[in-house]
C-alpha cells in the first residue's frame, strides 16, 4: 500500500468492522465510531485503530474523531439517514476529500448521488447481480419430451 491514510468509519456492524480490519491491516490509521460499545467486539484482533462510542449525528462526536484531518470517511451504519447526515457534514463542514455513505433505499440514494455525496446502495447492487444472473440463465427448453 502507498502512504498511510487517516480513515474514519461510522458504524461497526458487519460491513464497518470488516472494512476497519482490512484497512487497518493494510497499514492505514483508523477510527471507528459506533453508538453501542458492544459492537466493537466484532472487530478482528488485528485492528489497531481507535474506537469512539457515540452518536455520529452529534458534531461533538465527529470532532472528537478529528474529522478535519481525515482523508476518507465511510458512513456504514444500518440507518440511511444517519449515514447521509454524517456524510454531508464530513464533506461540507469538515471538507473530507473522500466521503462514501451506504444507503439502502434506492430512491433516497438517487437524490443524494445527484447532490455529489458518494453513495453505495446495496439493494441496487444486489438487484443488478441477480438480474444479470437471470439474463444469463440458460434458455428454457422448448418442449419437454418424455
Amino acid at each position: 500500500m502507498k502512504n498511510s491514510l487517516y480513515i474514519v468509519i461510522i458504524g461497526c456492524g458487519r460491513l464497518g468492522s470488516h472494512l476497519a480490519a482490512r484497512l487497518s491491516r493494510a497499514g492505514h490509521s483508523l477510527v471507528v465510531i459506533d453508538r453501542e460499545e458492544d459492537t466493537f467486539s466484532d472487530l478482528s484482533p488485528d485492528f489497531s485503530g481507535f474506537r469512539i462510542t457515540g452518536d455520529a449525528t452529534q458534531i461533538s462526536v465527529l470532532k472528537s474523531a478529528k474529522l478535519k484531518q481525515a482523508d476518507i470517511l465511510f458512513a456504514v451504519t444500518h440507518e440511511d439517514n444517519v449515514n447521509l447526515m454524517a456524510a454531508q457534514i464530513a464533506r461540507r463542514i469538515f471538507n473530507v476529500p473522500c466521503v462514501m455513505a451506504r444507503v439502502f433505499d434506492p430512491k433516497r440514494e438517487e437524490v443524494y448521488a445527484r447532490m455529489g455525496i458518494g453513495t453505495v446502495c446495496p439493494t441496487s447492487v444486489a438487484a443488478e447481480i441477480f438480474l444479470r444472473a437471470a439474463d444469463s440463465a440458460p434458455a428454457p427448453q422448448e418442449e419437454i419430451q418424455s
Binding site: T57, E79, D80, N81, V82, L84, M85, Q88, R108
Partner: peptide, 8 residues
Amino acid sequence: PRDQDNLV
C-alpha cells in the same frame, strides 16, 4: 425526535 430524519 431524530435530527438525521428531520434533515433528510
